[in-house]
Design a protein around this nucleic acid. Structure first.
Length: 156
DNA sequence: GCCAACGTTGGC
DNA sequence: GCCAACGTTGGC
């Protein structure tokens, strides 16, 4: 199976790319949307994802991460003290999943949403379409390549 | 801070 | 099964 590509949104005020570089590996928890969860469950170790800063200045892609652990139950759904607690999720059949990610490459500067909108490959992405709030977005190989090229980077 | 757009909930 | 109300996302 070929490597797949994704885009993961995070608010840098809460957890940004620099935070991931600091901690090394991070469980991508708190996703509470079925479409996004299904994408998480489709991820394989070795897949790569664009790390996107939302609600930021500027908004855009800050770097590339790799998936280092495939989907497993998101523990916060069972944590009554967490804002991500889901009292209706059963331990025997967890509703929400998470993956582990690790940093792969920091962009020299954020590839802004406006710049992504200027790339033809990205015209069809949910990310660039008005009103879409999906926090885990599938990315096509051409989209991934175009993003790296526009950011002026290549993967090691 | 504003607000458009969206997904989810729950009454019926 | 419908759909109004609600809470949330996320760009600006």
């Amino acid at each position: 199976m070929a490597r797949a590509y994704w885009l993961l949104k995070s608010e840098p005020d809460v957890f940004g790319y620099a935070d991931l570089e600091r901690v090394g590996t991070e469980p991508w928890n708190g996703v509470r949307n079925y479409q996004a969860r299904n994408s998480l469950r489709a991820m394989k170790v070795g897949d790569q994802a664009l790390f996107y800063h939302s609600n930021a200045n500027p908004t855009g892609v800050a770097g590339v991460v790799k998936i280092v652990r495939a989907a497993y139950p998101d523990d916060l759904q069972f944590d009554a003290s967490s804002p991500y607690h889901d009292p209706r999720s059963k331990a025997a059949d967890p509703r929400w999943s998470m993956v582990d990610v690790a940093p792969l490459l920091a962009f020299p500067q954020v590839l802004t949403l406006g710049a992504l909108r200027g790339l033809p490959a990205w015209a069809a992405s949910p990310l660039t379409q008005k009103g879409t709030r999906l926090s885990v977005v599938p990315v096509t190989p051409p989209q991934f390549r175009a993003a790296l090229k526009a950011a002026g980077v290549r993967l090691p």
